[in-house]
Amino acid sequence: MERYILLKDEATADIAFIAYGKNMNQMFENAARAVYDIMINKNKVKGDIPIKFKVSSDSFESLLVKFINKILLYKDYKHIVIPMINVNIKEDYTLYCTAKGEKLTKLKDYFIADVKAVTMHELKIKKRKGLIECKVVLDI
C-alpha cells in the first residue's frame, strides 16, 4: 500500500494528494507525512523534539483539516516540521497526537514548498478496496 499519491492533473496552482490507510489512524498519519514530504525533500529525518497535542471536531473530514492546520501552526509559529507522527482517534472525533519534530533551521537546504493551508475543496474520506482514503488539496 502506498502511503499517498500526488495528483499531477489537479489543483493547478496548488498541490493535491490522496492519502491511504488500513484504518483511520493510519490514513491521518499518511496525510501528515504527505504534508511533510511536500515541504521538505529529506526522507530520513527522525526528529528529536517531542510533540503532543489533541484536536477535536464533529466529523472525520473536519478533524483532518484541524489536524493538518495544527501541523502548519507548528511550522509557522514554532518553526518545527513533523516527519514522524502517531495518532489515536477516538469515537468522539478527538485525536491524540504524539510525534517527533525537527527544527526547520536544520532542514533549510531541503525546502521544496511552503504549505499555506489545507482546503475543504473536494475533501471527502472514502472507503475503497479495503482501504480508507482521502483526497486533500493544499494551498501552496
Binding site: L7, E10, T12, A13, A16
Partner: peptide, 11 residues
C-alpha cells in the same frame, strides 16, 4: 495564469 500543476511541473 497557470496551465500546469506544480506536481506536473516537477516532472
Amino acid at each position: 495564469g497557470r496551465t500546469m500543476s506544480r506536481v506536473k511541473a516537477r516532472e
